[in-house]
């Protein structure tokens, strides 16, 4: 039985004539210890897919099964690393991590919490910045805090929603290695959402392209048969790498072409206005 299974998932936003079907007929199964990457264009519904898996959203139709049981709400078993880090700006690095540790392991002594938090902060190499506020950190450091926070809950599965999207290429590379290291240590199941094909090939066992939304659906999977640990420079000469990379990019390009030729259709924007809270009191 698969570790995580998505069965015929449909997700629609809005109702009636304003309804937009973002995801349609998504089927996915991930085995225990696997590292799967989902690659897709911006706006193709990747974040919606992630939120369905971590429990922040519910599918309109279909079922998300985690360890054979349907997903109902969020759980400490599935750690999430958000696209925009989502650290709480008024807490220090340590406090941000402590908050997660305390929730995941209730009723321990304070010293135990501190030690756990320190362990995970050390794992991402942020011990010197332990008492800093997020605003005093660089983007890469902030994302490392988010990684530490997600890992500190000892999740069985790590879900990453474009975690490195906003970082520069060098920081990206180091963080990719760090994440792979951590994943390799106790072989947790991992799901990476990304828009970078190379990142997917470097990190994952399998790559599944997400055809762009509305009505986004998963494309055929590509297996990455490159031995771990992988080396970026060596990989460039690996014939397997080239073949897979070209195949994926070709596939994505074809979708892009398809998408362009369909653009003639007119999009009617929903009539939305910001929630006018202030005026209600005036």
């Amino acid at each position: 039985m698969a570790y995580l299974e998505l069965k015929n998932i449909y997700k629609t936003y809005g109702t009636d004539e304003n309804a937009t079907e973002v995801l349609s007929n998504i089927n996915l199964s991930i085995e225990e210890g696997e590292f799967v990457a989902i690659v897709g264009f911006t706006g193709s519904g990747k974040t919606t897919l992630v939120n369905l898996i971590n429990g922040l959203l519910e599918p309109t139709k279909g079922e998300v099964l985690f360890k054979g049981k349907p997903v109902e709400g969020t759980s400490h078993e599935r750690g999430v690393i958000f696209q925009n880090y989502s650290l709480l700006p008024w807490l220090t690095v340590e406090q941000n991590v402590l908050m997660a540790v305390k929730e995941a392991f209730p009723k321990r002594e304070k010293a135990v919490y501190k030690r756990k938090a320190a362990y995970y902060i050390d794992m991402v190499g942020l011990t010197p910045a332990i008492n800093k506020l997020p605003k005093e950190l660089s983007g890469g450091m902030r994302q490392r805090v988010a990684v530490a926070r997600a890992l500190s809950m000892k999740p069985d599965m790590i879900i990453m929603d474009e975690p490195l999207g906003a970082l520069d290429a060098l920081t990206r590379g180091t963080l990719q290695d760090q994440i792979l290291n951590i994943w390799g240590k106790d072989k947790r199941t991992a799901l990476l959402i990304t828009n970078d094909v190379d990142e997917g090939i470097y990190m994952a066992d399998r790559i599944i392209p997400l055809r762009p939304g509305p009505n986004a659906t998963l494309g055929p999977e590509f297996k990455i048969d490159i031995e771990r640990p992988r080396d970026k420079t060596e990989m460039n000469d690996n014939p397997n790498y080239k073949k897979t990379r070209n195949a994926i990019i070709e596939y994505l390009m074809d979708i892009g072409e398809e998408r362009k030729s369909q653009v003639s259709e007119e999009f009617v924007l929903p009539d939305l206005a910001p929630k006018d809270f202030v005026n209600q009191f005036r």
């Binding site: 922040l56 969020t74 958000f82 709480l88 008024w90």
Partner: peptide, 25 residues
């Protein structure tokens, strides 16, 4: 919404959510 999502993912209780996330923000 990001902070609320964090609170949900960390599974903070209502009391914790109000005092650790909603009020500071």
């Amino acid at each position: 919404k990001d902070y609320i999502n964090v609170a949900k993912v960390l599974k903070l209780g209502n009391f914790q959510k109000v005092f650790k996330v909603v009020l500071p923000s």
